[in-house]
Computed example of a mutant assay.
Amino acid sequence: MSKTNKIRWTYKISSLLSLAFILFFISPSFIHADTSMQGYKEVFQDYPILPFFNNEEHTNKEDNQGQHQRLEDVRVVPGGQSIGVQLETKGVLVVGHHQVKMSEGVKSPGEAAKINIGDTIVEINGQKINHMTDIKPIVDHSGKENKKMQIKLKRGDKYIETNLQPIFDKKENAYKIGLYIRDTAAGIGTMTFYEPETGKYGALGHVISDMDTKKPIDIKQGSIIHSSVTAIEKGDNGLPGEKQASFQTQEKRIGNITKNTDYGIFGVLEKEVNHEKYDETFPVALSHEVKEGPAKILTVVDGEKIEEFDIEIISSVPQKSASTKGMVIQITDPRLLELTGGIVQGMSGSPIIQNDKVIGAVTHVFVNDPTSGYGVHIEWMLEDADIIQSDLNEAAA
């Protein structure tokens, strides 16, 4: 065979392999749902997207170079604890429009002012807005004075200004702006790791998005709290299960939340965290070190007891740049399958351990196969926890 023909055949084979890869990963059986923050359905819900095709990586990075470690020196305590999560948004999030009754019909002043669902109200008439309670006095004053409100919005990365005229609702005897708004969110998830010396931690393994807008929540601050699993709704094909858990507000707060990124929530612990399985630190394994085969996860299925369960790493993609879905995993532990049916909502963040190294966290369940789902590689969570730098990670990979 001539050299030219060899090149042509090589090109054809490569093209066919690429097509097969794409068709495999857009198979309907791989549509997934987030596996955390689902215990409070008025705040969060799952939303299906296609795997491996995430074009928006909006991770927050901070410049703490002096506090970063070399990869070979990183050791963390694996988590597994069930945690409650409470978030406060930056400004007030617009989650819907509603119609205000007038004498001549109905109207939504907010919609007329071109305020969109997903926008964040950050200022009104030059006054910063931190909570929903900040808005009503301004609305009342503007309505009585028959003056338009000057509103500053954050839409994505841009700031927009608009004017809104409140309308008097005779039935409720109050001025209205025709917007549904929210300034807090709550739910449950799982701790992935923490670093004992600094108290830095990572949890969940994926971003927390608002139930109504489906957009990542831009947080002002937040808390993680001790949580106790009270019941489990078993998963089935087409219907992901979920953990049901309870937690108190600030009484059992164990740390703050400073980041909500594509790779989870991050902050610093304020109290010691008990661990029934491990109290020593573990090294971490980067994506190119993860092997197909047996592994374990740590999670809670009853009360606050952390337990170890068998899984299988079905596939792992060595990654030189950040991506949220690096592993396909399958639950193989008979007891966990009997209790939960596989991966359930609230299990997000459960650490994955292989060969005595922390390799990542559970993040999503496949809706059509609750025994399987995705995991995120640990290095991307370590970056967002400000434990390692991205350039160090890329050099090692």
Rank of each mutant, 00 (worst) to 15 (best):
T4R: 11
F24S: 11
F25S: 05
I26A: 03
I31V: 10
H32T: 13
S36I: 07
M37C: 11
M37V: 14
L50R: 13
E57T: 15
E62S: 15
N64F: 13
Q69A: 05
Q69V: 08
Q69S: 08
P78I: 08
P78E: 04
G80C: 13
E88I: 09
T89L: 11
G91P: 08
V94N: 02
K101E: 10
M102Y: 04
M102R: 15
S103C: 02
E104W: 09
A113D: 03
K114V: 12
I115H: 09
I117L: 06
I117G: 03
T120L: 11
T120C: 09
I121F: 00
V122G: 04
K144R: 14
K144V: 05
E145V: 08
M149S: 14
K152N: 04
R155P: 05
K158L: 01
I160K: 08
E161Q: 15
Q165G: 02
Y175P: 01
K176S: 15
G178R: 03
R182W: 03
A185V: 13
A186Q: 11
G187H: 04
E197W: 08
L204R: 02
V207R: 08
S209D: 07
K214T: 07
D218F: 11
Q221T: 12
I225M: 05
E233F: 11
K234T: 10
K234G: 03
G235R: 12
N237K: 12
P240S: 00
K243V: 05
F247A: 04
E251F: 10
K252T: 15
R253C: 05
K259R: 06
D262E: 11
Y263D: 06
G267Q: 04
K271R: 14
H275V: 03
K277R: 14
D279V: 14
T281G: 00
A285P: 06
I297K: 01
G303Y: 07
F309A: 01
I311G: 00
I313L: 14
I314R: 06
V317E: 08
P318H: 10
T324C: 02
M327I: 15
V328I: 15
I329K: 07
R335P: 03
T340F: 04
G342N: 00
I343S: 00
M347R: 09
M347A: 09
G349H: 01
G349F: 02
S350I: 11
S350H: 04
I353F: 07
N355F: 11
D356K: 15
K357V: 10
V362S: 01
V367H: 08
P370N: 04
Y374H: 00
N393W: 05
